[in-house]
Protein backbone atom coordinates (compact mmCIF):
# COMPACT_ATOMS: atom_id res chain seq x y z
CA UNK A 1 0.00 0.00 0.00
CA UNK A 2 2.79 2.36 0.91
CA UNK A 3 4.30 1.55 -2.47
CA UNK A 4 1.72 3.76 -4.15
CA UNK A 5 2.83 6.79 -2.15
CA UNK A 6 6.59 6.44 -2.28
CA UNK A 7 8.92 4.68 -4.70
CA UNK A 8 10.94 3.40 -1.72
CA UNK A 9 10.19 -0.11 -0.42
CA UNK A 10 10.97 -0.23 3.31
CA UNK A 11 12.16 -3.44 5.03
CA UNK A 12 10.43 -4.02 8.31
CA UNK A 13 13.11 -6.48 9.41
CA UNK A 14 15.17 -3.33 9.84
CA UNK A 15 14.23 -3.62 13.52
CA UNK A 16 16.82 -6.43 13.70
CA UNK A 17 19.41 -3.68 13.74
CA UNK A 18 19.27 -3.73 17.51
CA UNK A 19 21.23 -7.01 17.25
CA UNK A 20 23.94 -5.77 14.91
CA UNK A 21 25.66 -2.64 13.62
CA UNK A 22 25.54 -4.10 10.10
CA UNK A 23 23.64 -2.00 7.58
CA UNK A 24 20.65 -4.31 7.22
CA UNK A 25 17.07 -3.49 6.26
CA UNK A 26 18.09 -0.48 4.21
CA UNK A 27 15.06 -0.66 1.93
CA UNK A 28 15.28 -0.04 -1.79
CA UNK A 29 14.36 2.26 -4.63
CA UNK A 30 13.96 -0.26 -7.40
CA UNK A 31 16.92 -2.42 -6.37
CA UNK A 32 19.09 0.55 -5.41
CA UNK A 33 19.81 2.37 -2.15
CA UNK A 34 17.27 4.96 -1.03
CA UNK A 35 18.72 8.49 -0.98
CA UNK A 36 19.03 8.87 2.85
CA UNK A 37 20.96 5.56 3.07
CA UNK A 38 23.21 6.61 0.20
CA UNK A 39 24.07 9.87 1.95
CA UNK A 40 24.53 8.19 5.35
CA UNK A 41 27.15 5.94 3.78
CA UNK A 42 28.91 8.85 2.13
CA UNK A 43 29.10 10.67 5.47
CA UNK A 44 30.53 7.61 7.25
CA UNK A 45 33.15 7.17 4.56
CA UNK A 46 34.12 10.82 4.74
CA UNK A 47 34.59 10.51 8.53
CA UNK A 48 36.64 7.31 8.24
CA UNK A 49 38.88 8.96 5.65
CA UNK A 50 39.41 11.87 8.00
CA UNK A 51 40.15 9.48 10.93
CA UNK A 52 43.06 7.86 9.10
CA UNK A 53 44.90 11.13 9.23
CA UNK A 54 44.20 12.12 12.85
CA UNK A 55 47.54 11.99 14.77
CA UNK A 56 47.87 10.16 18.12
CA UNK A 57 47.69 12.57 21.06
CA UNK A 58 50.73 11.20 22.90
CA UNK A 59 50.51 13.58 25.85
CA UNK A 60 46.83 12.70 26.37
CA UNK A 61 47.61 8.99 26.13
CA UNK A 62 50.39 9.31 28.71
CA UNK A 63 48.10 11.13 31.10
CA UNK A 64 45.61 8.26 30.87
CA UNK A 65 48.23 5.52 31.05
CA UNK A 66 50.18 6.75 34.06
CA UNK A 67 47.66 5.79 36.77
CA UNK A 68 47.28 2.33 35.24
CA UNK A 69 50.96 1.50 35.04
CA UNK A 70 52.91 3.43 37.65
CA UNK A 71 52.49 0.87 40.43
CA UNK A 72 53.39 -2.03 38.13
CA UNK A 73 56.32 -0.77 36.06
CA UNK A 74 59.56 0.47 37.54
CA UNK A 75 60.31 3.02 34.81
CA UNK A 76 58.18 5.53 32.88
CA UNK A 77 57.25 4.71 29.27
CA UNK A 78 59.49 5.68 26.36
CA UNK A 79 58.06 7.34 23.25
CA UNK A 80 59.54 6.10 19.97
CA UNK A 81 58.93 6.59 16.27
CA UNK A 82 59.33 4.49 13.16
CA UNK A 83 61.33 5.36 10.02
CA UNK A 84 58.14 6.59 8.31
CA UNK A 85 58.47 10.26 9.08
CA UNK A 86 54.92 11.31 8.22
CA UNK A 87 51.47 9.89 7.46
CA UNK A 88 51.82 10.00 3.70
CA UNK A 89 55.05 7.98 3.81
CA UNK A 90 53.56 5.68 6.43
CA UNK A 91 50.61 4.79 4.19
CA UNK A 92 52.79 3.91 1.18
CA UNK A 93 55.80 2.37 2.94
CA UNK A 94 54.87 -0.29 5.53
CA UNK A 95 58.51 -1.42 5.51
CA UNK A 96 59.51 1.89 7.10
CA UNK A 97 56.72 1.58 9.66
CA UNK A 98 58.22 -1.74 10.85
CA UNK A 99 61.62 -0.22 11.68
CA UNK A 100 62.63 2.11 14.49
CA UNK A 101 64.23 5.37 13.45
CA UNK A 102 67.95 5.58 14.25
CA UNK A 103 67.24 8.21 16.86
CA UNK A 104 64.61 6.03 18.57
CA UNK A 105 66.83 2.97 18.45
CA UNK A 106 69.58 4.91 20.18
CA UNK A 107 67.20 5.90 22.97
CA UNK A 108 65.97 2.38 23.58
CA UNK A 109 68.12 0.75 26.27
CA UNK A 110 69.74 -2.45 25.05
CA UNK A 111 68.95 -5.15 27.58
CA UNK A 112 70.55 -8.03 25.70
CA UNK A 113 73.08 -8.72 28.45
CA UNK A 114 70.55 -8.62 31.28
CA UNK A 115 68.44 -11.48 32.53
CA UNK A 116 65.49 -11.80 30.08
CA UNK A 117 62.09 -10.45 31.14
CA UNK A 118 58.79 -12.24 30.47
CA UNK A 119 56.93 -9.53 28.61
CA UNK A 120 57.24 -6.23 26.77
CA UNK A 121 54.10 -4.18 26.09
CA UNK A 122 54.23 -1.93 23.02
CA UNK A 123 51.51 0.59 22.12
CA UNK A 124 51.48 1.59 18.42
CA UNK A 125 49.27 4.19 16.70
CA UNK A 126 48.70 2.09 13.55
CA UNK A 127 46.09 3.12 11.00
CA UNK A 128 43.73 4.85 13.39
CA UNK A 129 44.83 6.53 16.58
CA UNK A 130 41.30 6.62 18.00
CA UNK A 131 41.24 3.00 19.21
CA UNK A 132 44.62 3.41 20.89
CA UNK A 133 43.62 6.69 22.44
CA UNK A 134 40.37 5.36 23.88
CA UNK A 135 41.07 1.71 24.70
CA UNK A 136 44.81 1.11 25.23
CA UNK A 137 44.94 2.56 28.79
CA UNK A 138 42.17 0.33 30.15
CA UNK A 139 43.51 -2.67 28.25
CA UNK A 140 47.01 -2.19 29.69
CA UNK A 141 45.62 -1.55 33.17
CA UNK A 142 43.47 -4.68 33.06
CA UNK A 143 46.34 -6.81 31.81
CA UNK A 144 48.76 -5.59 34.47
CA UNK A 145 46.25 -6.26 37.25
CA UNK A 146 45.59 -9.74 35.90
CA UNK A 147 49.31 -10.50 35.69
CA UNK A 148 49.81 -9.43 39.28
CA UNK A 149 47.24 -12.01 40.38
CA UNK A 150 48.66 -14.77 38.18
CA UNK A 151 50.51 -17.71 39.72
CA UNK A 152 53.60 -16.86 37.72
CA UNK A 153 55.66 -13.86 38.77
CA UNK A 154 55.68 -11.97 35.46
CA UNK A 155 58.76 -9.80 34.95
CA UNK A 156 58.01 -6.83 32.74
CA UNK A 157 60.09 -4.61 30.47
CA UNK A 158 59.41 -0.91 30.32
CA UNK A 159 56.44 0.15 28.22
CA UNK A 160 56.97 1.80 24.85
CA UNK A 161 54.69 3.95 22.68
CA UNK A 162 55.43 4.12 18.94
CA UNK A 163 54.25 6.69 16.41
CA UNK A 164 53.76 5.84 12.70
CA UNK A 165 54.32 2.17 13.53
CA UNK A 166 53.23 -1.24 12.18
CA UNK A 167 52.74 -4.48 14.14
CA UNK A 168 56.20 -5.88 13.39
CA UNK A 169 57.98 -2.93 14.99
CA UNK A 170 57.23 -4.72 18.26
CA UNK A 171 59.60 -7.53 17.23
CA UNK A 172 62.63 -5.27 17.21
CA UNK A 173 61.57 -3.56 20.44
CA UNK A 174 60.92 -6.89 22.20
CA UNK A 175 64.28 -8.22 21.04
CA UNK A 176 66.18 -5.16 22.25
CA UNK A 177 64.41 -5.26 25.60
CA UNK A 178 65.33 -8.96 25.88
CA UNK A 179 61.68 -9.95 26.35
CA UNK A 180 60.47 -13.54 25.97
CA UNK A 181 57.25 -12.30 24.42
CA UNK A 182 55.83 -9.03 23.19
CA UNK A 183 52.24 -7.73 23.20
CA UNK A 184 51.51 -5.04 20.59
CA UNK A 185 48.37 -2.93 21.02
CA UNK A 186 47.73 -1.18 17.71
CA UNK A 187 45.01 0.91 16.06
CA UNK A 188 43.29 -1.12 13.35
CA UNK A 189 42.32 0.42 10.07
CA UNK A 190 39.05 2.27 10.55
CA UNK A 191 35.82 0.77 9.28
CA UNK A 192 32.79 2.78 8.34
CA UNK A 193 31.04 1.92 11.58
CA UNK A 194 34.13 1.45 13.71
CA UNK A 195 36.89 4.05 13.52
CA UNK A 196 37.98 2.98 17.05
CA UNK A 197 39.13 -0.67 16.90
CA UNK A 198 42.19 -1.82 18.81
CA UNK A 199 44.10 -4.93 17.66
CA UNK A 200 46.27 -7.03 19.97
CA UNK A 201 49.16 -9.15 18.68
CA UNK A 202 51.10 -11.60 20.82
CA UNK A 203 54.51 -12.82 19.61
CA UNK A 204 56.75 -15.27 21.48
CA UNK A 205 60.50 -14.93 20.98
CA UNK A 206 60.35 -11.57 19.21
CA UNK A 207 63.15 -10.71 16.81
CA UNK A 208 63.32 -8.49 13.74
CA UNK A 209 62.11 -10.24 10.56
CA UNK A 210 59.34 -12.45 11.92
CA UNK A 211 56.16 -12.89 9.86
CA UNK A 212 52.53 -13.09 10.88
CA UNK A 213 52.21 -16.87 11.21
CA UNK A 214 54.27 -16.51 14.37
CA UNK A 215 51.66 -14.31 16.06
CA UNK A 216 48.26 -14.67 17.67
CA UNK A 217 45.77 -11.88 17.13
CA UNK A 218 42.75 -10.58 19.00
CA UNK A 219 40.95 -7.97 16.94
CA UNK A 220 38.08 -5.52 17.15
CA UNK A 221 38.62 -4.55 20.77
CA UNK A 222 36.34 -1.55 21.27
CA UNK A 223 33.17 -0.59 23.15
CA UNK A 224 30.85 -1.83 20.37
CA UNK A 225 33.00 -4.87 19.59
CA UNK A 226 34.99 -7.21 21.83
CA UNK A 227 34.91 -5.78 25.37
CA UNK A 228 38.22 -5.08 27.12
CA UNK A 229 37.45 -7.65 29.85
CA UNK A 230 36.93 -10.43 27.31
CA UNK A 231 40.02 -9.39 25.34
CA UNK A 232 42.08 -9.46 28.54
CA UNK A 233 40.80 -12.93 29.40
CA UNK A 234 41.76 -14.27 25.97
CA UNK A 235 45.10 -12.51 25.99
CA UNK A 236 45.98 -13.91 29.40
CA UNK A 237 45.07 -17.41 28.22
CA UNK A 238 47.27 -17.01 25.13
CA UNK A 239 50.16 -15.62 27.19
CA UNK A 240 50.04 -18.51 29.66
CA UNK A 241 49.94 -21.01 26.81
CA UNK A 242 52.75 -19.21 24.99
CA UNK A 243 54.91 -19.37 28.11
CA UNK A 244 54.14 -23.08 28.57
CA UNK A 245 54.61 -24.09 24.91
CA UNK A 246 57.33 -21.52 24.13
CA UNK A 247 55.60 -20.47 20.91
CA UNK A 248 52.84 -18.33 19.41
CA UNK A 249 51.17 -18.40 15.99
CA UNK A 250 49.45 -21.21 14.16
CA UNK A 251 50.85 -23.75 16.64
CA UNK A 252 48.94 -22.07 19.46
CA UNK A 253 45.19 -22.39 19.09
CA UNK A 254 42.85 -20.18 21.06
CA UNK A 255 40.72 -22.69 22.92
CA UNK A 256 39.12 -20.34 25.42
CA UNK A 257 35.48 -21.21 25.77
CA UNK A 258 33.52 -18.28 24.45
CA UNK A 259 31.15 -16.48 26.67
CA UNK A 260 27.73 -17.29 25.38
CA UNK A 261 25.98 -14.29 23.96
CA UNK A 262 22.41 -15.43 24.34
CA UNK A 263 20.98 -16.93 27.50
CA UNK A 264 21.05 -20.69 27.97
CA UNK A 265 24.21 -21.44 26.06
CA UNK A 266 22.47 -23.02 23.08
CA UNK A 267 23.56 -22.52 19.50
CA UNK A 268 20.10 -21.33 18.57
CA UNK A 269 19.15 -18.07 16.93
CA UNK A 270 15.83 -16.77 15.64
CA UNK A 271 16.30 -18.38 12.21
CA UNK A 272 16.50 -21.90 13.60
CA UNK A 273 14.60 -21.67 16.88
Amino acid sequence: MSEAKTPVVANHWRALRRFTDARIGLGRAGVSLPTPELLAFQLAHARARDAVHLPLDVAGLMANLTPAIEKHLPEPPIILESCAGDRFTYLQRPDLGRQLSDESRARLPSASLDEPVDLAIVIVDGLSSVGVQNTAPSMVGGLLNALEQDDHDWKLALLTVVEQGRVAIGDEIGERLNARMVVVLIGERPGLSSPDSLGIYLTFGPEAGLTDERRNCISNVRPGGLPVEEASRRLLYLMREARRLKLTGVGLKDRTEDTVIEGGGANKNFLTR
Partner: peptide, 15 residues
Protein backbone atom coordinates in the same frame (compact mmCIF):
# COMPACT_ATOMS: atom_id res chain seq x y z
CA UNK B 1 29.96 -9.75 13.01
CA UNK B 2 32.72 -8.26 15.22
CA UNK B 3 32.00 -10.63 18.13
CA UNK B 4 30.56 -13.56 16.14
CA UNK B 5 27.21 -12.89 17.83
CA UNK B 6 24.86 -15.53 16.44
CA UNK B 7 21.78 -13.31 16.47
CA UNK B 8 23.70 -10.51 14.74
CA UNK B 9 24.97 -12.96 12.14
CA UNK B 10 21.48 -14.38 11.66
CA UNK B 11 20.13 -10.86 11.10
CA UNK B 12 22.63 -10.26 8.29
CA UNK B 13 21.95 -13.70 6.77
CA UNK B 14 18.22 -12.97 6.70
CA UNK B 15 18.80 -9.56 5.11
Amino acid sequence: HPTDDLTGIAASILD
